[in-house]
């Protein structure tokens, strides 16, 4: 399988910045190397289900808020429905 097909998008960097958590603090809380957090944020490493659940648990959000198989919409981006209204 190609790496593209296995790509998992995440919002770790955004959540981390929002909560004011450093990479090293997050790594210490998750018991991983701090570089692993960087690789996760850059999308160069897809975590195991266990690590993904622990990350979601750390930020106290559902796992689908942090991870997705499709790119997350950019902040401020809105989708327009067929009838012209914004969602």
């Amino acid at each position: 399988m190609s790496a593209d097909r296995e790509k998992v998008y995440n919002r770790i960097a955004m959540l981390r910045a929002e909560r004011g958590v450093s990479r090293r603090d997050l790594a210490a809380a998750l018991d991983v190397h701090y570089q692993t957090v960087g690789y996760l944020e850059r999308g160069e490493y897809s975590p195991s289900l266990h690590l993904a659940l622990r990350i979601a648990d750390y930020f106290e959000v559902p796992v689908e808020v942090v991870f997705s198989l499709n790119p997350f919409p950019r902040l401020g981006a809105t989708e327009t429905t067929n009838d012209g209204s914004r969602s």
């Binding site: 450093s22 990479r23 570089q35 957090v37 850059r42």
Partner: peptide, 11 residues
Amino acid sequence: MADPPPEEEAV
């Protein structure tokens, strides 16, 4: 090994 992520500035 891939290039390590750059060090971040203090949060």
